[in-house]
């Protein structure tokens, strides 16, 4: 009985819009920072992708051209609160793919840099800590995907109606 109450309470807090808003802002900011390191370094990012030894130079250049903008648009969408679920869907898919690639690189013993937040070839090489870090991001993205969207969007700033915050005891 008590166990059920605790679980219910955790679920209530987890699905609280403020928690959803904070997670959304954290994940959005992370992807905006990650994208900004790549947007102006397409050639360096192409080389980073080639270091994973999966894609041809042509496809790697296409990925290096488009991927930073996917990250940036999804990050901005999350921050502004528009397309929340679709952004979370794209980011969780990307994160799962990235993590698989990192595990593969570690399995093959490739001594390469992640290219996630910096395109500097002398930055830290990949390690299992990166898999752990990505797992946390995946958990955040999946949380945003599964939980209902919150209403603190850019549009709500211009909405004259007051937003009623649900209390912790209310059902979402």
């Amino acid at each position: 009985m008590d166990k059920c109450r605790i679980t219910d309470r955790i679920t209530l807090y987890m699905t609280h819009p403020v928690v959803h808003f904070i997670v959304r802002c954290i994940l959005g900011s992370i992807f905006i920072i990650a994208a900004l390191s790549k947007v102006n370094a397409v050639d360096e990012f192409t080389q980073t992708i080639l270091n994973y030894r999966i894609l041809s130079p042509l496809i790697a250049t296409v990925v290096a051209t488009v991927l930073p903008w996917i990250e940036l648009l999804c990050g901005v969408s999350l921050l502004l609160g528009i397309f929340q679920r679709s952004s979370a869907f794209i980011l969780s898919t990307l994160l799962i793919v990235f993590t698989i690639l990192i595990v593969r690189a570690l399995y093959l013993g490739l001594s390469i840099t992640c290219g996630c937040f910096s395109q500097d070839p002398s930055s830290n090489t990949l390690g299992w800590w990166k898999v752990l870090e990505n797992s946390v991001y995946i958990a955040l993205a999946v949380y945003l995907l599964l939980c209902p969207e919150d209403q603190f969007t850019i549009f709500s700033l211009f909405d004259k109606r007051n937003i009623q915050l649900p209390r912790a005891n209310d059902h979402y």
Partner: peptide
């Protein structure tokens, strides 16, 4: 929405480069 985000990213990406 996913198609819109991916399509927009592709257009903006190539335009920016």
């Amino acid at each position: 929405e996913v198609s819109l985000l991916l399509g927009l990213s592709t257009i903006v990406g190539f335009l920016y480069t």
